[in-house]
Design a protein around this nucleic acid. Sequence first.
DNA 1: CCAACGCTTCGGCTATTGTCGAAATATGAA
DNA 2: TTCATATTTCGACAATAGCCGAAGCGTTGG
Lengths: 231, 231
Amino acid sequence: MKAGPDIAIVAALVGDPARSNMLTALMTGRALTASELAYQAGVTPQTASSHLAKLEAGRLVEQEKQGRHRYYRLSDPDVAAVLEGLEGLAARAGHMRVRTGPKDPALRHARVCYDHLAGDLGVQMLDSMKKQRLVRQRKQDIELTAEGERFLTDSLQISADALSHPRRPLCRACLDWSERRHHLAGTLGAAILTRFTELKWAMRDAAPGSRVVNFTRNGEKRFAALFGEIE
Amino acid sequence: MKAGPDIAIVAALVGDPARSNMLTALMTGRALTASELAYQAGVTPQTASSHLAKLEAGRLVEQEKQGRHRYYRLSDPDVAAVLEGLEGLAARAGHMRVRTGPKDPALRHARVCYDHLAGDLGVQMLDSMKKQRLVRQRKQDIELTAEGERFLTDSLQISADALSHPRRPLCRACLDWSERRHHLAGTLGAAILTRFTELKWAMRDAAPGSRVVNFTRNGEKRFAALFGEIE
DNA sequence: CCAACGCTTCGGCTATTGTCGAAATATGAA
DNA sequence: TTCATATTTCGACAATAGCCGAAGCGTTGG
């Protein structure tokens, strides 16, 4: 009756504050160096080193060496998905870190959730796509419509067919912890955020570990034109 | 940059062996008493009591008092989903509890994953439904076809329309940790397993905390007739 | 070549948390 | 009413794991 995977080992890896801070920093989807992760976690480099070794042994992160630098990233989107789920449980249980600083509203407005847009704007985008019948959502199933494919091609020069990926869905509903509603994940969600960046509508906060997405004035206008409030 | 949910708190709750054993035991979808959970976790009742208080404070479980008995269950399917995800990560990282006893093959053959069928038979069922075009799966998106609705009504007396649920999808692909492929979750997956039980094709192992599903001889035949190997 | 920097390894310390014995309270059955 | 059982609470103990200083190794740039 105790057969099966031992979730305690994995969860204990995430359950340490220093390690969870590192994993959260990696939810930006960026690779960060050991030093940057040490800073994010608020520990010394030697402490971070031993933590990272554990995360790597547990297959939660993987590393790539560049000269003297060690870059770490999440092993794959499955890890990010579990971390998202944990974020939802933590938010629901009220385990929020109270930092009502200037960054908090920005984080709620628009932020990266691994590789796709989240926050107020992320939720608004999915809502708008549903109202425009670009996607169909039944509960947590999201499907791109033919009209949606044309929209993506015409307005954003994104080809849905090119987003095929053996292990990730095109569309996935991701529960937004700040809005408590869904935003769009999957390869399409990632492609859209990438396109926003290419078009210079939005850019990521440059601070390592920051998840904030800053839209330009023009970007906000373009975003509103495509995904604004629709009756 | 440390704003947002504090996943360390939730993960640390899962990361203790005694507590993770309890949560795993509750993945059967059944409510268990504090004593039964203490037994599953291999600790004394007083230790279990303090653990359960923590899990309840963390909103991972909820309790219902019946006389002298306290029944605990997982708070909701979101908790189960995160635990499933952790199981997948643990299995991938090779954190398997080596108990190659008589129960292990049974667990791999057919078991409950919260409320739907998993294991070899669970994976086979989804495969067959795909080959018979009862469902369409593109990566992790699963959609019931019109033919599938008729099949469910005719063969199992299950009405897909009656499975509507505000917070759960009809179909969800759940990665099976023993088969490393998908089985069917969601309200439909749950309804199918329930129907097998009603039809007396299958029954759950009566031991508290056991996830094994035992098919009868007749049940195996009926299951094979509906979901057997199809070319 | 030398100095600076990134990262790892080693060893010792300490705080935290899980554990159980003991005791108390509530419920159910005879 | 009494006894058995389920569960909770309290207090003490011990083991573990995270922490950092010190030292070492590898890489980079001047």
